[in-house]
Design a protein around this nucleic acid. Structure first.
Lengths: 220, 220
DNA sequence: AGGCGCTTGTGCACACTTTCACAAAGCCGT
DNA sequence: ACGGCTTTGTGAAAGTGTGCACAAGCGCCT
């Protein structure tokens, strides 16, 4: 389930704060979701709650981590050392959360050798060697859109089985490879859509408030 | 619909490549989805297709842009000039896609005045002034998790009505404010989950292949 | 030891999404 | 001008996810 990481996040915070026990109701409020959904999601892990009491926070954190495979670190390799690649690598968030950057590669000769976030940029031809030497399973695509498919092909050829794609393009991969796409522009466009609707609504009410012929308020 | 930006992306690429007309089937293949879904989604915009022919790419791009409110630029303001804020601001992707960075603010005095991606970092107290002077509707939270709620409150107080939250925390906002959350760690954890399942599957088949007592292959 | 109050785990109904299937409609060749 | 081919737009079916409601179970208090 895609919500387990969110619960993990919330539970970890609560654990830090000294909370040892939590009910589905409290967890639901924290996550802004329905309590029944929380219980259904958690019951997927097994029956780890105690009726009348709730869930043991620490135990639940451990169980979710186990389910998500977070009991050890996963090194990732970044393809593309442009703006986005540099940003992702320089941003320390990956390593903090158990996904240290195990390598960065690019095709451009002038980028190779430079050090970003403590990792040296190497040529994409060395990708397979990097992946195998560190037993890397996850690759991150941080190339421009048109190069994304090539990057994906190179990652798959190198032996990576999961891909996180930040490039604004859909990539095709063989069966058995997990791909997730994060497009910052898409997120902004969705917000823009909401803003647009808000603006239209304001316009409509404004027109309606003005005295005049009827039936024209909603005209575009 | 959350899929319109994806269609827009695909259609723009096709338009660049000189394609003037496209069928729902082709568009579906490009996007890796079902053709009927594409038609339903597009019919939401109106009946802009021609039976027996398909859709006019340029016209469709225009219509989607209009629906998404992308007929003009939307300035955004970034709260938090740490690693993540710097990465987002330095990464030129926002501006390229019609969302130029209109300001960056932070609470830390030592960050104020530095220039990132061509924009000077200012104090968070100036947020309202920045938002109003540039008529900014969208705010980006790039703070550490614990500061995210404060950032959201400040953005809402300043008059922002849409929030893109990159911080690993759920923020509460008044009714009528649109919030979207992007957590890079969550994406990686979902991939980790798939890797974990793959590893478990490999383990199970290995155990099953070894001669021995039955019924122990899947034991954890 | 027994009852009471609280919380989990889950069957069921409902709502929403996705997919199928096909009639309506447009283009093209004859 | 007409018939056949292609593709849209959409009703209906199948599938998925969500939320309610409640029985089962646990701890605590008397």
């Amino acid at each position: 389930m895609a919500r387990l990481p969110v619960y993990l996040q919330l539970l970890s915070e609560q654990f830090e704060a000294g909370i040892t026990n939590i009910s589905s109701e409290e967890l639901a409020t924290l996550g802004g979701v329905n309590a029944a959904k929380v219980r259904k999601d958690l019951s997927y892990l097994g029956s780890y709650g105690t009726r009348g009491v709730g869930y043991d926070v620490e135990f639940l954190v451990f169980q979710i981590k186990r389910e998500l495979g977070l009991t050890h670190e996963w090194h990732v390799v970044i393809v593309g050392a442009g703006n986005l690649g540099q940003a992702l690598s320089g941003y320390g968030g990956f390593g903090e959360r158990g996904f240290p950057v195990g390598g960065i590669v690019d095709v451009a000769e002038d980028k190779i050798g430079s050090v970003i976030g403590g990792v040296r940029v190497r040529h994409i031809d060395e990708l397979a060697q990097i992946v195998q030497s560190r037993d890397i399973a996850i690759g991150v695509i941080a190339t421009p859109g048109p190069a994304a498919q090539d990057a994906a092909d190179a990652l798959v050829a190198a032996g990576v089985t999961s891909v996180l794609n930040f490039a604004p393009a859909i990539v095709n991969t063989p069966h058995g490879i997990s791909v997730r796409k994060v497009d910052l522009a898409v997120e902004l466009q969705i917000l823009s859509y909401h803003e647009q609707r808000r603006a239209n609504a304001r316009q409509a009410t404004k027109l309606q408030a003005v005295p005049g012929p009827r039936g024209r308020g909603a005209s575009a």
